[in-house]
Design a binder for these strands. Structure first.
Length: 665
RNA sequence: GCCGCUUUAGCUCAGUCGGUAGAGCACAUCAUUCGUAAUGAUGGGGUCACAGGUUCGAAUCCUGUAAGCGGCACCA
């Protein structure tokens, strides 16, 4: 007689189950309602199919739609499979590759048959219908274990070259799971999956877009078509998500930048920002803020040349690695009169700086530095140009001309951890002043790099130590290490912020570099009277003013806090009799340092309130006859439903308080 | 750079079968002086992204280029 397995349930009860029985059997034993609602199971914490047999005593938790995170993940993964099956059903000859769940849905990478163009938007409605048919057919999803060899043969015989290649790359003799959808379609997959396609809600998904994606993420490989969908447990969730996307689009920095007249972009200088007066107010407020921050932290500000001899970039290593992304210019005066070729074969080449590091090393190298001079912290609002691939550009977040809040800290080996830690604290204060939550990552050594492994070990450990000491190496701060993501000369700590639609952008960084000081021969005289190499810490907090302002616009949805708002207050009149008083109010505001405008137009107050509210002006000071007589203003604050009448002096004091930057409060 | 899509008035967009350009907002003028999210009337405004091609005729069809959008790759 075989022994029974003891299966314990979350409520503390246990059930004895025969070997070979599954979570589905337990669900059925508990009740038909649960049997129907069960989507998958957790056996000893691991998410598995309902039909996965027990292998011994176990702790079992049945997963239903109420376990939302698990249920969503399962559903999205299944949507991806259904998508692939639908595409192959509609377009025989399509090759399938991979399709995972994402944060809000799923995608599948496919290769359209050679007989047709890559899939486009027009194909999506048809594919959606085919997916619904598969869901309605309620096809059982059944796991099977195949040998690697059997899979390779199957994929090869069916012309699935990508799948065959993948299977061939797996370890010899490994057993691989496949999932059948009904009896007529299968995909290689680790699982787990829902019991059948009918567990999906046919109204809870939507195919969103198509995009190109390289096989195995390598641009030297074939380009596949990635079909993206968003997938949920029910239509209500889907609709809520689509509404969220619409709301997010309203705070897009490109849209708000135009509506609020902050900046523009145009083809003649694509990838470079034209800052308008209102946008530049924000830019300058950030510059002022950052100057206060870095001066308080022991930095000195410098300014270095925009164009340097290419040989300098060769020496630093940047020309070798990034020449194609640098703007190079011949160092000649073109002879326009004679019409001679503008660039001679032997022209001397200069390059516009793509970054500030080498120039800062050159400043450091002037004169003899003593260990007593260290750490030396050199800061620059450094304007850089990089000729980015066209597809990389994105509004003002990723541009070809940008200004970094860039500094380099030259220090001794024994000062590195302390300096990095101090930087973590400084960055933390800055992000919190702007109301951001950030994630912090450590990008480790890449395959192609300069410098010895011993130095890389040291540098990575320094950064890791500093973060641990600063107490930031936690889940709360999204701490993670990213292998292979570092720069060619140093590992990087990266600070990431999130935009309106959930895309993350790197802003801050600090890098512990022993390569550039070596290549550019920077040194200081130590206590022992000998020459030593300083360690060079590259660091930025905003990253670039352009990107940071883009993120700020989206974070605030254009409703800037008063200290950053381009126009902090508008004085609006109700009748022309109040014009004189409005002018007086304006004078008083200006004298108090408030960025104010007046609106004396012959328009109804309703119209003015609406217009300035849409323009996201923080405070509207309304004046009519009554206010003029009493020396008051009626303050209507953005977002408030009522105005508050107060003496002018009181209003000014309030505005001055709100206009004070957070670091000066 | 690659895949898909887009480009019409300052802005947001319509424009059917290829027949010579339309709306709302904005702007200007006039009237209106009004108490917290759109007062009314009138008017001006477009090489339909750019360059070729097909056609009697192109915003519309074809080819190329540029920029933008969504991804991929890249991001010192």
């Amino acid at each position: 007689m075989s022994q029974l397995f003891k299966i314990s349930l979350p409520d503390g009860s246990t059930r004895d189950m025969a070997p070979g029985s599954t979570p589905a059997d337990v669900a059925a034993a508990i009740g038909p309602g649960l049997a129907k609602a069960a989507l998958a199971a957790r056996i000893d914490g691991e998410l598995v199919d309902l039909t996965q047999p027990f292998s011994g005593d176990a702790a079992l938790a049945l997963v239903t739609a109420r376990d939302e995170a698990d249920a969503l993940d399962l559903a999205r993964h299944d949507f991806a499979h259904v998508l692939a099956e639908a595409v192959q059903g509609l377009f025989p000859g399509t090759q399938i590759t991979f399709g995972p769940a994402t944060d809000d849905g799923f995608y599948y990478d496919v290769m359209a048959p050679a007989s047709r163009d890559p899939f486009g938007m027009d194909d999506l409605p048809v594919i959606e219908e085919a997916m619904r048919a598969i869901i309605r057919a309620d096809k059982p999803l059944r796991r099977e274990v195949w040998s690697r060899q059997a899979l390779i043969e199957k994929w090869t015989s069916e012309g699935e070259s990508f799948k065959a290649e993948w299977a061939a790359g797996l370890p010899e003799g490994e057993e691989l799971s496949v999932y059948w959808s009904g009896d007529d379609w299968l995909d290689m997959c680790r699982g787990p999956h829902l019991p059948s396609t009918g567990k999906l809600d046919p109204q809870a998904f939507k195919l969103m877009r198509v995009a190109g994606a390289y096989w195995r993420g390598d641009q030297n490989n074939a380009q596949l078509t990635r079909i993206y969908g968003t997938g949920w447990l029910n239509k209500k969730q889907l609709d809520a998500h689509l509404t969220r996307l619409e709301e997010a689009a309203k705070r897009d920095h490109r849209k708000l930048g135009q509506e609020m007249d902050l900046f523009h972009l145009q083809a003649e200088a694509h990838g470079s920002v034209f800052w308008h007066p209102k946008g530049y107010v924000i830019y300058r407020a950030l510059e002022d803020y950052m100057r206060r921050a870095i001066h308080g932290a022991g930095y000195e500000e410098i300014k270095t040349p925009q164009v340097m001899d290419v040989r300098q970039w060769e020496q630093s290593g940047h020309w070798g690695k990034y020449a194609e992304n640098m703007f190079a210019v011949p160092d000649i005066v073109p002879d326009v009169e004679s019409g001679a070729p503008t660039v001679a074969a032997d022209a001397q080449w200069m390059a516009i700086k793509p970054m500030n590091c080498p120039a800062h090393v050159l400043v450091f190298k002037q004169g003899i530095k003593s260990y007593r001079d260290l750490p030396m912290r050199l800061y620059e609002n450094g304007c850089c140009h990089r000729n980015e691939a066209h597809g990389a550009l994105h509004g003002i977040m990723r541009v070809r001309q940008f200004t970094q809040d860039d500094a380099h800290i030259f220090c001794r080996e024994d000062q590195v951890v302390e300096e990095v830690q101090a930087f973590c604290a400084l960055a933390d204060r800055v992000y919190k002043d702007f109301g951001f939550k950030y994630a912090i990552k450590l990008a480790l050594r890449p395959d192609k790099r300069f410098g010895s492994d011993a130095d890389w070990d040291k540098a990575e450990n320094e950064l890791r130590d500093a973060v641990v000491k600063a107490g930031l190496a936690t889940e709360e701060y999204g701490w993670a290490e990213l292998p292979g993501e570092g720069a060619f000369y140093a590992p990087k700590l990266e600070w990431h912020l999130t935009d309106a639609i959930g895309r993350t952008w790197q802003v801050g960084t600090i890098q512990s570099d022993r390569v550039l000081p070596e290549r550019l021969d920077a040194s200081y005289i130590g206590e022992d009277g000998e020459r030593h190499r300083p360690v060079m810490l590259h660091r930025a907090i905003f990253g670039a003013y352009e990107r940071f302002i883009g993120i700020l616009i989206e974070e605030y949805a254009g409703r800037f806090p008063v200290w950053l708002a381009p126009v902090q207050a508008v004085v609006a009149t109700i009748v022309s009799d109040a014009d004189g008083y409005a002018e007086e109010v304006m004078e008083a505001l200006k004298a108090a340092g408030i960025r104010a405008e007046s609106d004396l137009r012959n328009e109804k107050i309703n119209y003015k309130v609406r217009e300035h509210s849409l323009a996201k002006i923080p405070h509207l000071l309304v004046v009519g006859k009554r206010e003029a007589d009493e020396g008051t203003v009626a303050v209507r604050t953005l977002g408030a439903e009522y105005q508050k009448v107060m003496p002018l002096a009181e209003a000014i004091a309030m505005l001055q308080g709100e206009a004070t930057p957070p670091d000066l409060r």
